[in-house]
Design a protein around this nucleic acid. Sequence first.
DNA 1: CGTCCTTTTGATGCTCCTCAAGCGCGGTGG
DNA 2: CCACCGCGCTTGAGGAGCATCAAAAGGACG
Lengths: 218, 218
Amino acid sequence: MDEEGLAALAHSSRQLLLPPGTTIVEEGEPALAFFNVTRGTVKLFKSLPDGRRQITGFADAGQFLGLSTAQTYSFGAETVDNVRLCRFMRPQLETLLTDYPSFERRLLAAVTDKLAEAQEQMLLLGRKTAREKVASFLLDRMKAFHQTANRRQEAETLASVPMTRVDIADYLGLTIETVSRTISAFRRSHLIASAENHRIRILSVPTLTNIASGQKAE
Amino acid sequence: MDEEGLAALAHSSRQLLLPPGTTIVEEGEPALAFFNVTRGTVKLFKSLPDGRRQITGFADAGQFLGLSTAQTYSFGAETVDNVRLCRFMRPQLETLLTDYPSFERRLLAAVTDKLAEAQEQMLLLGRKTAREKVASFLLDRMKAFHQTANRRQEAETLASVPMTRVDIADYLGLTIETVSRTISAFRRSHLIASAENHRIRILSVPTLTNIASGQKAE
DNA sequence: CGTCCTTTTGATGCTCCTCAAGCGCGGTGG
DNA sequence: CCACCGCGCTTGAGGAGCATCAAAAGGACG
C-alpha cells in the first residue's frame, strides 16, 4: 500500500484505548463501524437466548473485525485484555475501498483467511475430542504469539493465554471444568508448563501436534 | 454489474457438468481454480488423518467456492447431486478482479456472508444439542430451497435434503444414528413429514424454530 | 489479612457414540 | 417375473466422554 493510502487510512480512523471486558460491538446492533486491532486481544462471539455462548475467534494485534454486509452485526465483540484499536466509520470505509483498490484486495484476502480459519475451527468443534481441542488451542496460541511478539529464542515455545477458562471453554465448545482438567493432565504429563504473565510453555511441540491432529501418540 | 463485465465473466469461465460424488477440489492440492455453482449442491469439508470428517458447508446454486489466498486448498469439495458449475482459472480471476471493481466488491460481500454463516455454524457445533442441531439444519435447508426454487405456495414449507445421512451427520458433528433418531422423533411428533424426491415438509415452522434456538417449547 | 473471584479437583449422571441387527428399496441376473 | 444382493436408513442395547453439581484451593486486590 502506498504512502498516500496509509495517510488517508490513518486520517479516516480514530484510535481507541479500552480496558479488559469492554464491549466493542453488540450482537444485533447497527453495523456502523469497522475496526483494526493494534494491540491486545479481542474475542468475537455469538449467543443463544438462554445464555449459551460460542466464541468464534480471537482477534490479536493486526487483525480486522466488524465487517458486515447486513445492516446489523451478527456477532458480539469484547476486549480480553488492554486493547488499542482503530475505528473506521462505515461511509469512510466505503470511500477507502473505492479509492484504494489495493486496500480492498487486502481486505478480501484477510476475510478469505478468516474463512479458512473458521473452517478449521468447525473441524475442531464438530469432530475433535476435548484432549485434541485443548492441544490444538495451545498450539494456535503459540503460533499467534510467534507472529505478534518479538521473536526471541526463548519465546519460540511460549503461548500467550490472556483469556479466562470461561473464554477458552466457550471457544472450544467445552466446560471450564473439562478445560481445566485437560490442561492439568497435560501438565502432569510434562507436555506443558506454566510461565509468568498468563503464558504457557510448550515442552513438546511434536507430541502436542500429534495429539491435536488425532494421532493417539502419547 | 454491467453488460461488458458479464460478457468478460462468461468468456473467461468454462462450464462443467458433474455427476453426484465427483471430487471438485482436493484438500492440499494447488489452488488453481475458482468456481461458481449454477445448479445442484456441493459439499465442502475438512478431514483429520484418521478419516474423521467435518462438512463445513453446502454450496447451492449461485454460490462461489474455491477462493484461497494460500497456494493450496485448505478444504475438499465434492458434488452432492448433479451439479453444473463455472470454472475460472486463477490468473483470469485476478484479471477480472482488477478490471471490474464491482465484481471484487461483490466477492468481498459474498465471502463476508460466508464468514457470518460459518460463525453461526460454530455456535451450532459448539453449543447446540443434537435436537437443536437437526432442527436448525432442517430450517436452513428450507430457507435454501426458498431462494433456489420457484416460490410456489406449496413449496413454502418444503426443505430440500439431497445429501445422505452421513453428510448430514458430518455437517452437524453427530453420528448418522443420532441424526436418524432425531429426525424420526420429529416425525413422530408431527413436526415434519417426508415428501417425494428427497424433500421434507416442515409442519410447524414456529415450533422447529423454537427448538433450533434452544427454547424448550414442545 | 480478609474477601472475592478464578481455577482446580472430585463424585455422579446424562447425552450421544459405539456396536449390532433388521428394514426398505432399487438394481441385477437367473 | 421374482429372488437375490447391496446400500442407505432405522431401531435397539450398552457404554464412554464430557457435563453437571459441589466444594476446596489458589491468587489478586483493597
